[in-house]
């Protein structure tokens, strides 16, 4: 009997000790949590914009969060696969986004798809490919070289830690995709796509090459608007191209929405003035 009690006590001590160890999270995991919280705040911001009826801005925030979170989660899937988890990568990914280009296209403003793609290459020892991806992430001014390098610790996490992080990420992914379900973008991925100014220049180049190629120019302007729905010039581009395409409703949509977020924009005001004058005739 005494032996039995002693055995139980020992078991209890062991269990208590083990559970205590399990509850103490490694400090470096706090970095991951901080990022997840940050991405989550973008989702919250998207909700706020939706609540305010600012759908373009809501899509921007949801897209930013989705591109960042899904790329981190896909990175973890890849790392888990490299550590021998799952029968195949597809098996680990399941129904979730599992293509860097598709993930990045949700919002090219996020630098994280390039970063996490690079981290996977890094883990595979494909350092040249990793370097190219890191470079592309670093070109984006929203990527902080000083802070974001800390995310490299993903590469040293154990499989169980990775799984734990993945659980948090998939929960957030589910929340986002519940409210955000955009059409798949066909706009080609480029590391410069974070810049609306660059995308506007592409539109201008399109028009320079063919003055009547409004549709293609509009595609660039819409891409610019997607990565910066706070800049009046992007609304101007979309409005103008729609004028030339004869899309009345779209013209008004872009002028109205643009003035709402950039009320002082001279060009938008001039167009609105013209539209209002004509509307009053």
């Amino acid at each position: 009997m005494r032996k039995m009690i002693s055995a139980i006590l020992i078991c209890l001590i062991i269990v208590t000790a083990l559970s205590g160890c399990k509850g103490k999270q490694a400090d470096y995991l706090k970095i991951i949590d901080a990022y997840i919280d940050g991405f989550s705040s973008l989702y919250d911001q998207g909700n706020e914009y939706t609540e305010l009826g600012l759908q373009l801005q809501a899509d921007y925030s949801y897209g930013w969060a989705a591109a960042s979170i899904s790329s981190m989660r896909y990175c973890i899937d890849c790392l888990l696969y490299l550590e021998g988890e799952g029968d195949s990568l597809e098996d680990l990914v399941g129904e979730r986004p599992g293509n860097w280009d598709e993930i990045a296209a949700q919002n090219y403003a996020s630098p994280y798809p390039y970063f996490f793609e690079g981290l996977v290459y890094n883990s595979q020892g494909k350092n040249e490919d990793a370097k190219k991806c890191y470079e592309k992430a670093l070109v984006n001014p929203k990527f902080s070289a000083e802070n974001d390098k800390s995310l490299l610790i993903l590469d040293i996490l154990s499989a169980s830690e990775l799984k734990s992080v993945k659980t948090k990420l998939t929960m957030l992914e589910d929340k986002i995709y519940e409210v955000y379900n955009p059409d798949k973008s066909t706009y080609p991925r480029s590391h410069m796509n974070y810049s609306d100014k660059y995308l506007r220049t592409l539109a201008k180049e399109t028009l320079t090459a063919n003055e009547y190629d409004y549709r293609e120019a509009l595609r660039h302007y819409e891409a610019a608007l997607a990565v910066n729905p706070f800049e009046g010039d992007n609304f101007v581009g979309c409005a103008l191209m729609n004028i030339y395409l004869g899309e009345v409703d779209q013209t008004f949509f872009y002028v109205n929405e643009g003035l709402f977020v950039d009320p002082e924009h001279e060009g938008l005001n001039k167009i609105a003035e013209l539209l209002n004058q004509e509307g009053g005739q």
């Binding site: 008004f252 005001n269 004509e278």
Partner: peptide, 24 residues
Amino acid sequence: LKAKRASEFTKEDLERVKQNMLTT
């Protein structure tokens, strides 16, 4: 007030706007 929203009008109106813009 900052959002000087445009009124609805026809494609013909839009054509006039386009011409006016070009003239401007």
